[in-house]
Design a protein around this nucleic acid. Sequence first.
DNA 1: CGGACTATTGAGACTCCTCAACTAACGTGG
DNA 2: CCACGTTAGTTGAGGAGTCTCAATAGTCCG
Lengths: 235, 235
Amino acid sequence: MVDSSDDGPSLRAASFGPGVRDVVRLLSPRQRSQIADIATVMQLPSGSLVYREGTNANSIFIVADGVLKTFRDLPSGKRRVLAFLFRDDAFGLAQSGHYVYSVQTIRPATLYRIRVPALMDILKHDADLTFHFLCKVTHELRGALRHNLIMARRDAVGRLAMFLLMLEQNARAHSDSRIEIPMSRSDVANYLGLTHESVSRALSRLERNSIIAFAGRHELRVLDRARFEKLATTL
Amino acid sequence: MVDSSDDGPSLRAASFGPGVRDVVRLLSPRQRSQIADIATVMQLPSGSLVYREGTNANSIFIVADGVLKTFRDLPSGKRRVLAFLFRDDAFGLAQSGHYVYSVQTIRPATLYRIRVPALMDILKHDADLTFHFLCKVTHELRGALRHNLIMARRDAVGRLAMFLLMLEQNARAHSDSRIEIPMSRSDVANYLGLTHESVSRALSRLERNSIIAFAGRHELRVLDRARFEKLATTL
DNA sequence: CGGACTATTGAGACTCCTCAACTAACGTGG
DNA sequence: CCACGTTAGTTGAGGAGTCTCAATAGTCCG
């Protein structure tokens, strides 16, 4: 399924990893069954806490389906959302044996849970599989860098535009300028470093200016793509 | 040099990677010579551009010594610093064959340059080495997440305090409450998402309040560690 | 249908950015 | 060795934008 000539170009093209939504898919049948042997499938309803920051890190996870968020609760009581997770994303980052962020489902989710010791046994002897995980982490890293770029902006509308663009690129399902926002305004706000009031105001402004139009609170259409993308890229 | 019993616990402790300033050091002699075979040593004076964002990504680099910054230039003319690089850090992240950020030396630096095709040949057959790179990228990811947390704060002094604390932890050389700031105020500002004026004002305020004391523009001492750490952690 | 949560909208305070002037430090060339 | 110009850094006054506090409307679920 994955021969080396297939790996070569695409991997070299993006040290490391091209699209990278594919740790599971790009595996050879043998590798896939290896993973299946040590993975547990979990079905979680919306709002479930997968694990809490600081607890012992004994597993890593891969999203088979659904939407999740990673976050940290700050001493002040504020909550900071670090990332949103979609199909094929991996999570479970730890330091000194403890998870570095909490993870919660936003929509009902199906997860593969892989125990770290078992995974390590396989990784030690399988360069290909290890490389796939390398690509996964690289993908996560790019996401964090994009997040940083978003936070660089001072204006709420600009951040929001970038965020919406990101959502659109994530969900390539229906690319007809409809964007689904699966998370709450507060989650968006905590991700963008704004208050939920500012998010609300910024969205209102976009709608007032006929750049977007809402179809329910969690779905919108882009009316004026030129201005929309200009807002997102003009930083 | 690195036997499996050594790898096991430490790796499980931090999926993936413990301290991780050690891709080169933790390698077996065989691996090290493999790397040496394909690596080029570069000596660069202060202020050198290693590569520019968008150019063809044909190498990855490891910092043997010195200080560097990664950054992106935005259409508006503003510059956003994404990270500072110190000894043993790796860099060279690319997407679709192009580097995603520019890299420049802040202090004279020595780099190992490794061509991607050659590296891939080795990684394909060496799970251990691939795993080491996995740890490296994970380390970079943690840095990006910490950056995000810093940006979550709204107040300039708080960001600065967190940044200084980060610098102190990076340079474990002299841990007697002296912190060296190798980069310019503008670089700090671009990293923290502030203007250089705000950085200057915040530093002045810290000094006026007797929390820190400068010994030249690029070195300071922490006078009141309690208040200092309270500022950094009270978010 | 009721209650709790989510979302929207408004008025005032606060902080940082912008613009500007000024000082200090550094490197260059005479 | 000194003078000068350029860059880095500090400090000040005013304005723009978001946060805070508060009230209201809409939505989901039992």
